[in-house]
């Protein structure tokens, strides 16, 4: 008898009012999250519940309250894991094995027939750029090589949902670029990637869609721009470089949403603070067109993931 994954139109990953206690400690508190195709970054400080959310999504643990489903099927059901590829943060392997042996062993656990194990293992090793180095013992692998091997075993069965915990950690810059391209390619094939990472700059290169966790709750979900727009208490700061900043300053306060501005140190630019980015940019565009003001450069100063996290979580936004 063989098992096949039934096609479904249910959300790829759905957490409904999920709470998780570890004894008296509440790790996740009524989290609701729905993910479909595309890349979503999972960010938050240590202890915010990222690891718990990932373990719930992979079915490694069961929620204390609520429900976690993958394509409509309970995540703790072993059959669900046909749809999930998981790349854990820690790399605990059988160190005596070579990378190739490890991936082959994982292929067998996935249920590949003996005749497919070799082909599939070689294919994923090739995909993560480890074919040449796969015969070395795992104990001799660098952190980056371990990451690639972990990714290879997660890709074996071509899962719809890939959950990657710190996948870029320890990978050199060239390798990172390759990994980012691979993630984009997988997302382009309609897969859903949930990527937990502390490296926000890399995450921003990968996706603008993030789920921000704080103290066991989802603090925000959406694109960085959407989240930034909702932070009314923290006016957006934009630096505008132009030849005649005084001319622009005369008209600025008439734009809807602008609450103040300063001349920058060079004297050839303005730093504008505004609420409601959408209204501000619309009004600013109309102004410069109407008045014929020539703007050389325009740069938002605080819509980076770091800045947004800083506003949401307090501190510098370091996760």
């Amino acid at each position: 008898m063989s098992t096949a994954v039934p096609p479904s139109t249910a959300p790829l990953l759905l957490l409904e009012q999920v709470s998780k206690w570890y004894g008296p400690v509440l790790s996740l508190n009524q989290v609701t999250l729905e993910l479909n195709a595309g890349i979503t970054g999972l960010v938050g400080p240590n202890g915010s519940g990222k690891s718990t959310l990932i373990k719930l999504a992979t079915g490694l643990i069961a929620p204390s309250l609520g429900r976690v489903t993958v394509r409509g099927r309970d995540a703790s059901d072993w059959r669900t894991r046909h749809s999930i590829g998981y790349c854990p943060d820690h790399d605990a392997f059988y160190e005596d094995m070579s990378g190739r042996e490890f991936v082959r062993a994982m292929a067998k656990l996935n249920g590949f027939a003996p005749r497919d194990v070799t082909d599939r293992s070689e294919a994923v090793l090739d995909r993560v750029g480890m074919v040449e180095r796969a015969d070395r013992k795992l104990r001799g692998y660098s952190k980056g090589m371990r990451q690639r091997i972990k990714l290879a075993q997660a890709l074996l069965h071509d899962p719809e949902l890939l959950i990657l915990d710190e996948p870029l950690s320890g990978i050199d810059p060239l390798g990172r670029q390759e990994m980012l391209e691979l993630f984009h390619e997988l997302a382009g094939q309609g897969k859903c990637l949930l990527i937990s990472s502390h490296e926000l700059e890399e995450l921003e290169k990968l996706t603008s869609h993030v789920a921000i966790l704080s103290r066991g709750r989802i603090a925000a979900v959406g694109t960085l721009q959407q989240i930034r727009g909702l932070l009314d208490d923290y006016p957006m700061t934009v630096r505008v470089a132009l030849d005649d900043p005084k001319e622009l300053a005369k008209h600025l306060l008439g734009i809807d949403g602008v609450i103040g501005f300063d001349f920058d140190d060079t004297g050839r630019g303005l730093i504008i603070r505004a609420r409601s980015p959408e209204r501000f940019f619309a009004g600013f565009q109309t102004l410069i067109l109407d008045k014929g003001i020539e703007v050389r450069e325009m740069e938002p100063l605080d819509d980076s993931a770091h800045a947004i996290l800083g506003y949401l979580l307090g501190g510098s936004g370091k996760t």
């Binding site: 063989s2 098992t3 249920g111 294919a123 890709l155 071509d158």
Partner: peptide
Amino acid sequence: LRYRPWKGELNPP
């Protein structure tokens, strides 16, 4: 041997 979407069936656990 290139990575491509998997179309086959998998054995039971």
